[in-house]
């Protein structure tokens, strides 16, 4: 039964091939070869035109032009040798819907990838934090962005995540501020603290003289005043400078006898038999 069907199909194909005139086959072959050469040349020309754009953009543009033109060439060739493309396009439409449903995620990543490449907020070589993961961008592909984390593992972030969530680019600007938040006891002399911190920042040569370090009060509660001190550093040296400066601050605070604030509550007991007492709990 199956064998009969197969033989029938083969006979039909043979009949179709033998029925196609030779001149049409030759013409179709010439269109295919010339089309292929022209597509290659056109895609190369587009790459040359986009010489100033980043590499991923050029690669995508080249593929887009090449495959687009080759699609037209193949359609023309099939038409030449007598294929009726109408039903094929109809089938392709149904197939596209089916495939579209099946590959929603991939399609979403693909579109996100295109947006990501055109937006250029993130570039290869940037250090970024996305979805709680920090690392250096090693490649931005159509479906995903690859990160090399600082402890040297490769993380693949789907482009959809890159578009949907906030991405922090750590290396965008040439200088960064290293903030240290210090919750200190409200009894501490803030003028003295500011003077000492500014002196420390002057001693640390890699903290920039300008912009000047900031000294701001973030909050005042019954148990703590929170002070933020931030010195600026060159972005490349930021981590080293922040670590060294934090160590220096810790040493200086210890020398000055300034400890960090601890939460405290004052509980007053009202007892008829005893005098009013205050008990301070740390």
């Amino acid at each position: 039964m199956l064998k009969d069907l197969w033989n029938g199909l083969l006979a039909q194909l043979r009949g179709w091939i033998t029925n196609v005139p030779l001149d049409q086959v030759v013409r179709a072959s010439i269109i295919l070869v010339v089309g292929w050469i022209l597509s290659t040349l056109a895609s190369r020309a587009v790459v040359r035109l986009l010489a100033t754009r980043p590499l991923p953009h050029r690669v995508i543009a080249r593929r887009f032009v090449f495959f687009g033109l080759m699609g037209l060439v193949v359609a023309t060739v099939l038409h030449q040798i007598g294929f009726n493309l109408g039903p094929l396009f109809g089938a392709a439409g149904i197939l596209t819907v089916a495939v579209g449903f099946a590959s929603q995620t991939s399609a979403s990543n693909l579109i996100s990838g295109l947006f990501l490449l055109t937006e250029q907020a993130v570039e290869v070589g940037d250090a970024i934090t996305v979805a709680g993961i920090s690392g250096e961008v090693t490649s931005i592909d159509l479906l995903s962005t690859k990160l090399r984390t600082f402890d040297n593992t490769l993380v693949r972030i789907p482009n959809e995540t890159m578009i949907k969530t906030e991405v922090v680019v750590l290396t965008k600007f040439p200088i960064r501020r290293a903030d240290i938040d210090l919750p200190i006891s409200p009894d501490v002399d803030l003028t003295l603290l500011e003077r000492e911190l500014r002196q420390l920042a002057r001693e640390e040569k890699e903290i920039l003289d300008e912009p000047e370090p900031v000294f701001v009060l973030l909050g005042y509660t019954e148990s703590a005043i929170t002070v933020r001190f931030g010195g600026w550093a060159e972005q490349k040296r930021f981590i080293a400078v922040r670590t060294r400066f934090t160590q220096a601050v810790q040493r200086r605070l210890r020398e000055l006898g300034i400890g960090l604030a601890v939460p405290r509550r004052r509980i007053e007991a009202d007892d008829e038999q005893t005098e009013q007492r205050a008990l301070e709990l740390d």
Binding site: P174, K205, E210, P211
Partner: peptide
């Protein structure tokens, strides 16, 4: 004597210099 670093420019671009 190692002079302190300083930045000459804006937050977006500039030059790392000594002060």
């Amino acid at each position: 004597h190692r002079p302190p670093d300083t930045w000459f420019g804006t937050f977006y671009e500039g030059e790392l210099c000594y002060a």
